[in-house]
Simulated scan of single mutants.
Amino acid sequence: MEDSPRDRDEAGRARNARPRDGLGRPLPYGAAGVERQPEGVPRAPAEALAEAQRLLDEGKPFHAHEVLEDAWKAAPEPERELWRGLAQLAVGLTHVARGNPRGADALLSRGARNIEPYREDPPHGVDVAGLVAWVSGGSTGVPRLRRG
């Protein structure tokens, strides 16, 4: 069997160019997949939260995770764990949708722990208290990332 070269971006970093389904699962090369979120898109925090919420509302938690992961990577140090936790919540929802309760519980719990320290003074209107309550209450329905 011949080894196929790894997918690489213009800078030579490994990227998986396989098409993905709506929950981010890889499909065979050549299959019709769902358009992925572009990586490394700089967004203001309000824009990242709005885009992630739109994707969550559309039932695309994997894609919301990609938006939140970009925000995490670009965030100033004092906010990094907030964005990391939000991305983990989206991954947890992805596991819920994929039927993986164990993975869902692990990621949702980890995400809630990472955002908890921001409860008293949450940046960007993030509803930290509501999200932590949502996780501890069984994580049903679509979470609201921002208050109001």
Rank of each mutant, 00 (worst) to 15 (best):
E39L: 14
P42R: 14
R84V: 01
A31N: 08
R110D: 13
L89T: 01
Q53F: 04
E66P: 03
L108C: 06
N100I: 01
W83G: 01
A112V: 01
P101E: 05
G99F: 10
E51F: 05
Q53M: 05
R25A: 10
A112M: 01
P28T: 02
L23N: 10
G111M: 09
Q37D: 08
L55E: 01
E77N: 08
A52Y: 00
A44W: 02
P38I: 00
R113K: 11
E39G: 15
L82Y: 01
R119F: 03
G59F: 12
A71F: 06
K60C: 12
K60N: 15
A50C: 01
P42S: 14
A48V: 03
P45Y: 13
V67R: 09
G40F: 09
L86F: 00
P45A: 11
W83V: 00
A50V: 01
P38A: 08
R20A: 09
G40I: 07
R110K: 13
E58V: 05
Y118N: 07
R43Q: 15
R20V: 10
A75H: 07
P26H: 01
D105G: 10
A64K: 04
G111K: 03
K73A: 10
G103S: 07
A32F: 12
I115S: 11
A71S: 10
D21F: 15
A46P: 08
L23C: 00
L93N: 09
A75C: 07
V91T: 08
P26W: 00
A87I: 02
R80P: 03
A44Q: 12
R36E: 15
G92C: 01
V41C: 11
H65F: 07
D57C: 04
E51H: 11
G103T: 04
E58H: 10
G111D: 05
A32S: 13
L82W: 02
G99H: 05
E47V: 13
A97I: 00
A106H: 13
L68G: 03
A31R: 09
V91K: 09
E120F: 05
V41K: 15
P78K: 06
G24Q: 06
Y29F: 12
E35N: 12
E66V: 03
E66N: 12
H65Y: 06
A87Y: 05
V41N: 15
R36L: 14
A64W: 06
L27Q: 11
A106V: 07
N100R: 10
A87K: 12
G22K: 12
R80G: 08
A90F: 02
E39V: 12
R119K: 14
A90G: 04
A90M: 02
L82C: 05
P19Q: 05
D105F: 08
H63P: 04
S109R: 14
A64L: 06
G85T: 00
L68S: 02
I115L: 11
E120C: 08
N100M: 06
D21W: 13
P78C: 05
K60P: 08
R25W: 06
L93M: 10
P45V: 04
G85L: 10
